[in-house]
Design a binder for these strands. Structure first.
Lengths: 135, 135
DNA sequence: TTTTGCTCCTGTAGTCGCTACAAGAGCTAT
DNA sequence: ATAGCTCTTGTAGCGACTACAGGAGCAAAA
């Protein structure tokens, strides 16, 4: 049994964030010591670590909630998990593509921006009705 | 002179978002008609369009505020603008790389997840102390 | 002219995923 | 005993919106 500081260290989730997850019902509030402190079991810490990894993978909390319940459920969870992972992959790919388009636009605007000129081509383009760069 | 609905249409910024920008002081509140409605000039609409384009390029509001003031200032703004654009490019590249790492991790986890098995390798890996996939 | 239905106004609260702070109680090491 | 860390609850803030509620105004059809 570990206090919240240890649980935070072992899971990699900040103390404040653990409390936030508990408030939001993403993970259950653990039992307490006589003095009213939360005490975490190894299982509860594993759950926190799971949440952290999923967040790092870009899953929103609502999806993580579902994943946690699939995990508790045992059984034919794998198919659903895989499909959620694939949805997430699609979302990540979309984000990457949109950032790449953005980068191209910014690079082209930035390249037009030379040092000596009195007005700024980049600002002018962004202000104009028909921009020189597609977004 | 255009009412807020037209200004929204012409700039591509949602009405509520225009009001939000005005509340935050990013753009000035326009003059009013006799009946108390905001009336937007072409210039004010251009400013809104500028803010929209910058937001689409991923600039935060604080940077946009600086860009707007550089634009008003006239003069040797171009160099500073270019440097801000380059900072933004660095940030975008970092985001793209981190998303690509994420994608690799998710793909590898998802690939391990086959349909028939009773427990889910992906969930197991995410729950375990030493994960099979680097983040 | 009245009525219908759109637009506009202000103000407030909600979103997501935290993060920070305050004021107090408890626990541990010297 | 004391110093200094850790824990508790509660609340407010972040960025960039978005979504109401409740009311006023305005333009065009009947």
């Amino acid at each position: 049994m570990f206090a919240i500081g240890k649980a935070s260290q072992k899971s990699g989730v900040h103390i404040e964030t653990i409390r936030y997850y508990e408030r939001e019902g993403l993970v259950p509030k653990p039992d307490r010591s006589a003095a009213g402190r939360h005490l975490y079991t190894a299982d509860e810490i594993a759950k926190l670590r799971f949440v952290k990894r999923c967040r790092d993978l870009g899953f929103p909390m609502s999806i993580i909630q579902t994943l946690l319940s699939l995990n508790d459920e045992q059984g034919r969870s794998c198919k659903e998990v895989k499909s959620m992972a694939e949805d997430q992959l699609v979302a990540i790919n979309a984000k990457i593509e949109s950032l790449e388009r953005l980068r191209a636009a910014l690079q082209s605007l930035s390249a037009s921006c030379d040092e000596g000129t009195s007005s700024c081509p980049m600002l002018d383009s962004l202000m104009s009705e028909a921009p020189t760069v597609p977004l």
